[in-house]
Amino acid sequence: MSAPAKGTGKGTGKGTGKGTGKGTVAVVTGASRGAGAGIAAALAATGATVYVTGRSEDGIARTAAECDRRGGAGIPVVCDHAEDAAVAALFDRVRREHGRLDVLVNNAIALPDGLTDDRPFWEKPLAHQRMFDVGLRSSYVAAWHAAPLLTVGGGLVAHTSSFGGGCYLHGPAYGSVKAGVDKLAHDLAVDLAPHQVAVVSVWMGILRTERTLAGLARDPGRYGELAARTESPELTGRILAALLAHPERMRWSGRTVIGAELARELGVTDTDGSSPPSHREMLGGPLEFNPAVVR
């Protein structure tokens, strides 16, 4: 084991902005609906080719069609991210068809029924641990397969995360997964830095997805003022497009960021022109990891 090295090897990133457009190739996992669908659509709006993955054939077909409508190209790929062979086949297809990858968004997660039930973890089904498989482990597997394609010309890896990485949110399983993908982003960034591949984990706010809106409708008073401070599922995609195009994107690499705060920093607004608020004051901020590198 070597001594800790100074710095993280993230580099300054000057001159690395790739821009977005018809030459951009992206993979968005878990994109049949919700955050993944919104991110895919936002990337496609820049002209990108977006591989849209998920288990629902109908769902990914709808997302891919929306990508086409936005001016990009949506490619639906049925993929269960619990199956390593299916993930390998996905990235092998990207390699055959494009020879490289510019953006990987790790969004797939096995969100179980009853996740938001107000009960202690031992009274919830043990099946909630599936989030460790499709959520944390799946993000590592996708990154492992994507890395050789990302290093061809540099790019961006993003994990969709949440304030559950820093506070109690929906129970220990969910929180551990989100904290895990935050740390995973930090460590992936160290290895990918020499190849000008930036890696970030983005804490999204309360998204206006069908699932979330239905939950708020069932119990409108539960989340108080948070329910009125939502953001669209597309905001994160807009942020990632701006980050990929930024000439110094590497200075964010390895960090966990609050999406609403990064949006303001990059000059990105939501679909309605608004700037969604950060929930830092109420829910806290991301952990700052130590810059030491021990190999």
Rank of each mutant, 00 (worst) to 15 (best):
P4I: 05
T12H: 15
G15S: 01
T16H: 07
G17W: 01
G17E: 01
G19Y: 05
G23S: 13
G23K: 11
V27A: 06
S32V: 05
R33G: 00
A41T: 14
A44N: 04
A45E: 13
V52G: 04
G54L: 10
R55P: 09
D58Y: 06
I60T: 03
I60F: 02
I60G: 01
R62Y: 00
T63W: 04
T63I: 06
A64I: 12
E66P: 02
C67V: 08
G71H: 10
A73W: 08
P76Q: 10
V77F: 13
E83M: 05
D84T: 15
D84K: 13
A85V: 13
A86D: 05
L90M: 11
R96G: 02
E97A: 05
D102R: 09
L104Q: 09
L104I: 12
A110D: 14
A110E: 07
D113T: 08
D113I: 06
L115D: 05
T116R: 10
E123V: 06
H128K: 05
V134K: 00
L136G: 00
L136Y: 06
R137N: 00
R137H: 02
V141N: 04
A143D: 00
W144L: 14
H145M: 02
A146L: 07
A147N: 03
P148K: 04
T151C: 05
G154Q: 07
L156Y: 07
V157N: 00
V157K: 05
A158M: 06
F163W: 14
C167L: 12
Y168G: 10
Y168F: 11
G171M: 12
G171P: 15
Y174K: 06
Y174T: 08
G175T: 10
S176A: 12
S176E: 08
G180H: 08
V181P: 07
K183M: 14
L184H: 07
A185N: 04
A185T: 02
D187A: 12
L188G: 02
L188D: 01
V190C: 11
D191T: 13
A198R: 00
V200P: 00
V200R: 02
W203T: 08
G205C: 07
T209A: 02
R211Q: 09
A214I: 06
A214Y: 04
L216V: 04
L216G: 03
P220T: 10
R222V: 12
A228W: 09
R229T: 11
T230F: 04
T230D: 01
E234H: 14
E234P: 14
L235T: 10
I239C: 10
R249P: 01
R249H: 09
R249A: 00
M250F: 04
W252Y: 15
S253I: 03
T256Y: 01
T256Q: 03
V257H: 02
A260T: 11
A260V: 08
L262A: 09
R264Q: 13
R264F: 04
G267F: 01
G267Q: 02
T269R: 11
D270P: 09
D272S: 03
S274Y: 07
S274T: 14
S275L: 13
S275I: 08
S278M: 08
H279T: 13
F289W: 14
N290E: 13
